[in-house]
Amino acid sequence: MCRWLAYSGSPVLLSDVLYTPIRSFIDQSLHSELGAETTNGDGFGIGWYDGRDTPGIFRGVEPAWNDTNLREVSEHVTSPLFFAHIRAAIGSSVQQTNCHPFRYGKWLWMHNGFIDGFAKIKRDMAFAVDPSLYPLIVGTTDTELLFYLALTFGLETDPAKAVARAIGFVEAQGRKAGIDYPFQGTIVTSDGHSTWAFRYSSQGKSRTLFLTRDVPTLREQYPDAPIMQKVSDDTRLVVSEPIGNLPGAWLEIPEATYGMVQKGNDELRPFSPEPPA
């Protein structure tokens, strides 16, 4: 069903997070333990912030475990905030334009899940996208269309409300089409300063989502772990599935919840879709 990872904190080489830990993120492309599918081999993507006006992205259709270019790039890119995604396609083609993360201006967006009955409501979703944004949609996934729907509903000014409105619209259209549980998944988005992560499904049985405990607490638990001495106190990872081998390092984000990660102020709040007026 896909796996994703979002890192923020002290600048690190991407490879130190993607490849180094036991049960690494790249390992999960072959051996996911908590995903709907064990193998996530239908492409990959990384997106990173480096002080420029827009984040960089690198995406490919090879399996992540087998792409030497991904390893090469990740061993030479350092970033304080980056996304990574490995894809298990459902319904849409395996092509580069369908690989996450998706980018608009300074914003990145990833999703693990699906819109049930997407073909039935795709037209309604597309017509709801702002006409100035619609020409920028180049792939065929429900994720990309949902991203542009959230942008239409104000992602750049109020991310939590925009995602609530976008999912509310999907649920309303889906139920009109006779779909009992239109939305399933986890979403993460960032403007390069803060990161918002959402866990929600119409059925109340969402895909897994985890957040690292605060670094000072982890240093007390694991004083001999080298990584704990390298990263800053405000470093955080949000992941579909835990990486590494530090028991107790992860907090599961509850059902119907969203988290905001930013320097000095991490929050978890209840999340519910906002139906169309």
Rank of each mutant, 00 (worst) to 15 (best):
2 C>Y: 04
2 C>T: 08
12 V>R: 15
13 L>A: 13
15 S>M: 03
19 Y>H: 05
21 P>C: 13
22 I>T: 13
27 D>R: 03
33 E>W: 02
39 T>P: 00
43 G>I: 01
49 Y>L: 12
57 I>F: 03
65 W>F: 14
65 W>H: 11
72 E>S: 14
76 H>A: 13
76 H>M: 09
80 P>D: 14
82 F>E: 15
82 F>Q: 13
87 R>M: 12
90 I>K: 02
95 Q>I: 04
100 H>G: 09
109 W>L: 11
117 G>I: 05
127 F>E: 12
130 D>A: 03
130 D>K: 01
142 D>C: 03
151 L>K: 01
151 L>C: 01
153 F>A: 10
154 G>H: 08
157 T>R: 02
166 A>S: 08
166 A>W: 05
173 Q>G: 00
175 R>L: 09
177 A>K: 12
177 A>F: 06
178 G>D: 03
180 D>M: 07
196 W>S: 05
203 Q>D: 12
203 Q>E: 14
204 G>H: 11
226 P>A: 10
231 V>H: 04
233 D>E: 08
238 V>T: 13
239 V>F: 07
242 P>V: 03
242 P>Q: 07
244 G>I: 10
247 P>N: 08
248 G>H: 09
251 L>H: 08
253 I>W: 04
261 V>A: 11
265 N>G: 10
271 F>H: 02
